[in-house]
Nucleic acid binder design. Structure first.
Length: 875
RNA sequence: GCGGACGUGGUGGAACUGGUAGACACACAGGACUUAAAAUCCUGAGACGGCAACGUCGUGCGGGUUCGAAUCCCGCCGUCCGCACCA
């Protein structure tokens, strides 16, 4: 009677082999069945997989297995986002080649993913550092260049003057280089850019069609693109004070209606006028220098204290040549946005107001809020926005801001300044072109040759790929390609003279902007196989972290369009512009952090925990030294709060890991890793195993004919099973895995109490229950499901079974329970036939003892009956 | 600074379009089985008051709309994420 425990770590590899031998997950282009492309954002091969990583692959896998059972031709591939900084850092620190480090990590991580039993088509696997991948990327680059979607311009980087190297934003800590500690400077470099702004309007417009994307992601992208309608206004410089060679300054504004509230102009520290002013004025030069020390991160720039310096330059107000305003250099004006110059209207903009108060500049209210008293109205420390009536604005007085906006622009369009209109309408985008140059080794080489005579020449197609040299050195900072003795020396393909290779490599976001296309035909001779792409794309469900909500997803949307327009469109793909039909952003797995007395992070396995609730404490297991329990954070190598997957699977098995990460927390939210949560998952694995074993003994034999009649309790069991089946299907499709899990727990409770019954049809109902239960858990705990399936007497694979369909008749109850309220407060409930008429329900409700008592003889004013939901008696 | 989200028992969370708040799980308490333990099974439980029947309160805080609000609207507080060279 007693069932042996299910030994997951021992049985799981067996089933993985069986699946592999049966070649179940290799996707074939097969037009008979509808296709379904499921993709999780591919991982960076950082070393080892921990339980945190496994969550989004598990989610994708559940969906892939479910869709497969539903009859879809599923594509579920895996690959590696293999270029990037960590490999280069490892090379410097451990003297191991980035390629070797990356390959080792990939090998380890591939084995770990396989041990999770994922239904992945491994035949399509590739890494972005494979020459066979990046050579196609170089071809795409060349084609984009030919289409004028790539260009060069000067742009700023973080420069470490001690290490003589370019730093990523994350390598700049408090304004200093992370290794050298030197104060970081901004430096201008000529770099490569993708013309993403050409697609700004389309990328914004098309967001409206992405109805299977989270609202918040679309919102974030819309804000990121930042379309705004306004005007370019030219301000004449006052001749007395203007730097030599400058006559005017152009300002972009979305609020031309507030022009009469202007009290100063502010320009970016690297605006040409600011640079000219700095030449003659050491104070301005010093200020600009200080601004440059802030690095290039927008977050740092904008959260820094607002500071400025008066240049002494004056400009004429566009509507009044006698009105002179000062020009300031300010640290919050960005050269990259608009024209790098703004006019400050302190009464209408909080940042301008703070600035005006700090430097004692005039504050003129120009918009009177509705209901405010015109004579007494003053601006305190809070600016007023939008709505109201224009005041102090001469010919605009009395207008609404929207009307004043139109009027101001119309007038300026007619006003001539140096023979040209003083202003023009302009749609401005916050989105900037995508800078892809990286001064690093471990990335896709940009296939360009620089010739002194011929200029910038693309590497001819016949000479591609441009491969990374294997023998680069990593013993010092800086770009190893730049200092490689021979690699960059090459003959100009045009004139044959000695020339130099481009030593910049591409941003790794380029690699990840089209890997999902390559998965559709990973061995194609051309970057894109138009037939395969047309068949598989778009990705039907894309799953990844919210941290990619903007950059990766926007770049991919752009790049897919750009390469389509450059000759790599899927067949008949004129309407296929969006690569990801549905997007799901999953939460992280978090874990407590532990710190030793010396302040070093400790991994969980080195720590022993004691007590509970508020009395928890921790010690180092080996030494007994006290440990500080830190905050709960996303699992990360740097804080060591990771649970390694191998150890986990060795203890509990993959199915427990899978079940745990699917349970409890809604998938879009973070889940906290706890040992007790894992124990819960492990117990459930055993419980299912016991249940199925007992059911196998007590149920009808396999293939028994369905009885004509079922006892009430057998019907009740069947109802529960079919309702669960309905819920699990619905919730897997909606990616509400935690809810699907909960309904399976609920069913397990019912199954447990249904075992020892033997009324009419019950054995058959039990067999049906066992089979459907096993099929329902199969996408989530596939190994256990196979084990159970064979225990039920099958020599087929449950993975190959079609998803069962619930019987509609079993989903609805004949008698239902509805709540009865008096004045909106629940007082009793009522059991009544499902199809009872409103009148019947009302009468039955009013007749309830509790209701009669609570009514105290009062007559109902109104009785609201919502069929099958609720009765509310209003007195 | 700008932009985005989230907030429900001791804990993780459920609640389809506004209709019985707290499903399910964890932790906890009591019981069964056992020489004992583990495992397993059964029972209980939002808070407060009451022996109980039952009553009152209750979804971060303050207002509003509605017969009815966790859900919709306005204001506040708190937490988390992104900000263009981390991936």
């Amino acid at each position: 009677m007693a069932v042996e425990r299910y030994n997951a770590p021992e049985r799981e590899p067996h089933w993985q082999r069986v699946w592999e031998d049966a070649d179940l997950f290799t996707a074939k282009t097969d037009s008979d069945r509808p296709k379904c492309y499921i993709l999780e954002m591919f991982p960076y091969p950082s070393g080892r997989i921990h339980v945190g990583h496994s969550r989004n692959y598990t989610m994708g896998d559940v969906l892939a297995r479910y869709k497969r059972a539903k009859g879809f031709n599923v594509l579920h591939p895996m690959g590696w986002d293999a270029f990037g900084m960590p490999a280069e850092n490892a090379a410097m620190e451990r003297k191991v080649h980035p390629g070797e480090w990356t390959r080792q990590n990939i090998a380890a991580m591939r084995e770990q993913l396989k041990s999770m039993g994922f239904a992945i088509d491994w035949a399509r696997e590739f890494a972005t550092c494979d020459v066979d991948y990046y050579k196609h990327q170089q071809k795409l680059f060349a084609d984009l260049l030919a289409k004028d979607l790539v260009y060069r311009k000067s742009s700023k980087v973080n420069w470490d003057p001690v290490d003589n190297t370019v730093l990523a934003n994350e390598q700049v800590i408090d304004g200093r280089g992370w290794r050298s500690g030197a104060l970081v400077e901004q430096r201008e470099l000529t770099q490569w850019f993708f013309r993403i702004t050409k697609y700004a309007d389309e990328l914004l417009e098309a967001l409206g069609t992405l109805d299977q994307w989270p609202e918040k992601v679309r919102h974030m992208q819309a804000n990121w693109i930042g379309r705004s309608e306004g005007a370019l206004i030219r301000w004449a410089l006052d001749k007395q004070t203007a730097p030599k060679g400058f006559k005017e300054v152009e300002v972009f504004t979305t609020r031309p209606d507030t022009l009469f509230g202007a009290s100063f102009l502010a320009i970016a520290p690297d605006h040409p006028i600011a640079k000219a002013a700095a030449k003659d004025n050491p104070e301005i030069a010093a200020f600009a220098e200080e601004c440059r020390r802030l690095g290039t991160s927008v977050a740092d720039l904008e959260s820094a204290e607002k500071k400025g310096i008066d240049t002494g330059i004056r400009v004429k107000h566009p509507f009044d040549a006698d009105w002179l305003l000062p020009v300031w250099v300010a640290n919050f004006v960005l050269m990259d946005y608009g024209t790098g110059a703004i006019f400050g209207c302190p009464s209408g903009d909080q940042r301008d107001l703070d600035f005006a108060r700090a430097y004692d500049l005039p504050v003129i209210p120009v918009v009177l809020p509705p209901g405010a008293d015109a004579d007494a109205f003053e601006i305190g420390n809070e600016a007023v926005d939008g709505t109201g009536t224009m005041i102090n604005s001469r010919f605009l007085d009395g207008l609404a801001p929207e009307a004043a906006f139109e009027e101001a622009i119309s007038r300026l369009e007619k006003t001539k300044l140096g023979g040209k209109p003083a202003a023009s309408r302009k749609v401005n985008f916050r989105l900037r072109d995508w800078g892809i140059s990286r001064q690093r080794y471990w990335g896709c080489p940009i296939p360009i040759i620089h010739c002194d005579d011929c200029g910038v020449i693309p590497v001819p197609a016949k000479d591609l790929p441009v491969e990374l040299p294997a023998d680069a050195t990593f013993d010092k900072p800086g770009n190893p390609l730049e200092r490689h003795p021979t690699w960059k020396n090459v003959d100009c393909p045009k004139c044959g003279k000695a020339a130099r290779r481009e030593t910049d490599t591409m941003d790794t976001f380029v690699d990840s902007s089209w890997y999902f296309v390559r998965f559709t035909a990973p061995n194609a001779k051309t970057p894109v196989d138009p037939e395969a792409a047309a068949y598989w794309l778009p990705v039907d469900q894309y799953i990844g972290g919210v941290e990619h909500a903007i950059l990766h997803l926007l770049y991919s949307r752009f790049f897919f369009r750009a390469i389509s327009d450059a000759g790599h469109a899927p067949t008949g793909g004129a309407n296929l512009r969006e690569p990801f039909a549905a997007l799901f952003t999953q939460g992280m797995v978090t874990h407590e952090t532990y710190k030793s007395a010396k302040g070093a992070w400790l991994p969980p396995e080195a720590v022993t925990l004691e007590g509970d609730g508020n009395n928890r404490s921790a010690r180092e297991t080996e030494t007994g030294a006290p440990v500080t329990i830190g905050s709960i954070e996303k699992m990360s190598k740097s804080k060591k709060n990771v649970i390694d997957l191998d150890a986990f699977i060795g203890n509990y098995g993959a199915d427990t890991a899978r079940w745990f990460v699917l349970s409890d927390s809604p998938p879009e939210r973070d889940v906290i890793y706890t040992d007790v949560g894992v124990e819960g998952a492990r117990r459930f694995v055993q419980r299912i195993w016991r249940l199925v074993n007992e059911m196998a003994e007590k149920s009808a034999a396999q293939g028994t004919e369905k009885p004509a009649d079922f006892s009430p309790e057998a019907t009740q069991l069947r109802r529960a099973v079919h309702k669960t089946l309905h819920n699990v299907g619905r919730n897997i499709e909606g990616l509400r895995f935690n809810v699907a899990v909960a309904s399976l727990y609920e069913l397990a409770n019912i199954l447990g109490s249904s075992l020892d019954k033997d009324s009419e049809g019950h054995p058959w109902a039990l067999r049906e229950a066992a089979e459907i239960t096993v099929q329902m858990i199969a996408p989530m705990m596939p190994h256990l499901a196979e084990e159970c399936w064979s225990r039920l007497g099958y020599n087929t694979l449950v993975t190959n079974q079609p998803w069962p369909e619930p019987e509609p008749a079993l989903l609805v109850d004949d008698e239902i329970t509805i709540a009865v309220q008096v004045n909106g407060k629940r007082r009793d409930e009522l059991k009544i036939a499902r199809d009872a008429s409103k009148e019947t329900v009302e009468a039955a409700a009013l007749a309830l003892e509790t209701i009669v008592r609570v009514m105290e003889g009062r007559t109902p004013k109104k009785v609201i009956v919502v069929p099958q939901r609720i009765v509310n008696v209003v007195v």
